[in-house]
Design a protein around this nucleic acid. Sequence first.
DNA 1: AGTAATCTTGACTATAAAGTATAGATTGGC
DNA 2: GCCAATCTATACTTTATAGTCAAGATTACT
Lengths: 158, 158
Amino acid sequence: MKLSANEEYGLRCLVRIGYAGEGGSLTIPEMSQAEGVSPAYAAKILRVLRKGGFVKAARGKDGGYTLARPAEAIVIGDVMDALGGRIFESSFCDSHSGQAAICTRSVDCSVRSLWRAVQVAVDQVLSKATLRDLLQNEEEMNTWVRTIPGARGLHVIQ
Amino acid sequence: MKLSANEEYGLRCLVRIGYAGEGGSLTIPEMSQAEGVSPAYAAKILRVLRKGGFVKAARGKDGGYTLARPAEAIVIGDVMDALGGRIFESSFCDSHSGQAAICTRSVDCSVRSLWRAVQVAVDQVLSKATLRDLLQNEEEMNTWVRTIPGARGLHVIQ
DNA sequence: AGTAATCTTGACTATAAAGTATAGATTGGC
DNA sequence: GCCAATCTATACTTTATAGTCAAGATTACT
């Protein structure tokens, strides 16, 4: 359960572009240098963000990348999906039913329930957080996820 | 942010061994067949679990794997760590300070805060769940994580 | 029109993760 | 002692991810 390099650098580049503000833009060489990766690799990542509809590119002189939509309309979970996925339910979960000798059904249920619990926990954070939230300061971050008194399970204020 | 094959199969094998009960044991061929993976691969995974201290192996005829400790003393988070890690804070987070031209500090803070929030959310589930919880039924799973009225942030009942 | 700065694309290489193969060591039963 | 069933260890192959390279297309400016 690791972050991929795509996810790490992709989000970092997106946040940078966000910080550039309304209409502000950043070029590949700028992001490449700031993140300490090669221009070619930065370009590869930016392509994913562009195809995902999060940024748009302007070619030619004075070109660069800008946000394709307002920061508050960019959900971090969607960005993560585009960059490599929030996949917890691995493929094998649904196969191998009824062939095993020992407790197969229970094992499937047990493990799947766990993954589901983790998935829910992660989604609480990623699906509710927007790029705008990340551009605000660190203090804000702690208010994303908090409890609703009397409720069961994890909850996040919208 | 995907589950690795090690995490998936490792946990599944551990749960199987847990289902075998006190003193019950499972062999590599049994688990291999039940999970639909090769015996060699099952052996590789089981080695990780053994070196992590979660299971112990008996060689020779009538050998196999059993839990090294009671199921309630096996924390799933520790198992995941051994199998491949709960690593969200990627290495690059701490490098590249002060070299970039644009907003470096803020980007680091923003992204790191997000990863921390996700990490916390995941830890709430994984650090509190024991193998015993997984061996109980699915219904139990939903009570692991719940809110503490009036509190801020994520909380989990002990 | 020419030039420099920029993004675009696809193919390529390198590294890490997944999965296999083989030879060896231990144990229990005959 | 021998054999079959089991785990152990290491090296190998395959596949996916990470990262590079080179040629091309677009734009602004003069």
